[in-house]
């Protein structure tokens, strides 16, 4: 699915002391599976996710997704890719404060509104959000509930790839386990990339890639 060749991302290009967020990384990622990308803060995990999801343009190297070279994609094609193929769970939940939880989940849904609402409710239920809470504003939910709503939002269009940046950061152990279970189930037919600095949540991962200073330190395939 993903073919990454000599990927490099440099911050502060115009400064003398350049910061290599990603340094000459080459990787191949399959169509399905739960893949964990781990590493300490500043190791380049999130930068790699942003490059793979077209949110950031790499300084050098090439990313090929299903035969499409990112370097040859127009802005519109990248938007379309994000809309059609990718789902996002960001470090912060980024729920829209004035919308209900349900409206937040369906905000990017491709389905007609009624169907989108129905699907949104199902997803929220699977994320252990009670029906009574679905019409509440995000500020009335706990941090963990908000993060689970953000995950439901990422799943609404059944994207081919889920990019999850620290999806369990604000969850307690039980909920973290539940969310990872959901992502694991989803990864049977799709690709789920989980970025974390907590290896304990990646017990079910099919592959764990460890990044260190923008370089792949280890690439462990399981099962």
């Amino acid at each position: 699915m993903f073919e990454i060749n000599n990927l490099t991302l440099i911050y502060d290009m115009d400064k003398e002391e350049k910061v290599y967020a990603i340094n000459n990384v080459s990787l191949t990622l399959p169509d399905t599976g739960l893949i964990g990308i781990i590493g300490p803060s500043g190791s380049g995990k999130s930068s790699l996710m942003y490059c793979l999801s077209t949110l950031k343009k790499p300084t050098d190297g090439e990313i090929i997704y299903n035969g499409k070279r990112y370097s040859s994609l127009s802005k519109k094609e990248m938007e379309s890719l994000r809309r059609e193929q990718f789902g996002f769970v960001f470090q912060r939940h980024f729920l829209i404060g004035y919308m209900s939880v349900l409206d937040n989940v369906i905000v990017s849904s491709k389905l007609p509104k009624d169907m989108a609402k129905q699907k949104g409710r199902e997803l929220l239920s699977s994320m252990r959000i009670k029906t009574t809470e679905m019409n509440k504003r995000p500020r009335h939910l706990s941090g963990g509930q908000r993060q689970r709503c953000a995950i439901a939002r990422a799943l609404i269009n059944e994207p081919a790839v889920i990019f999850a940046d620290e999806p369990t950061a604000s969850l307690d152990h039980e909920n973290a386990f539940h969310v990872m279970n959901q992502l694991k189930n989803y990864s049977k037919d799709h690709l789920v990339l989980v970025i974390t600095h907590d290896p304990s949540i990646l017990q079910e991962a099919d592959r764990i890639i460890e990044l260190w200073d923008g370089i792949i330190r280890s690439d462990e395939r399981r099962g």
């Binding site: 949110l55 802005k75 379309s80 890719l81 059609e84 980024f94 829209i96 990017s108």
Partner: peptide, 14 residues
């Protein structure tokens, strides 16, 4: 601003 950023990330065009 933040909401617009989110929309752009989710694939809405500029």
């Amino acid at each position: 601003y933040e909401e617009w950023c989110l929309y752009r990330s989710l694939g809405y065009s500029q």
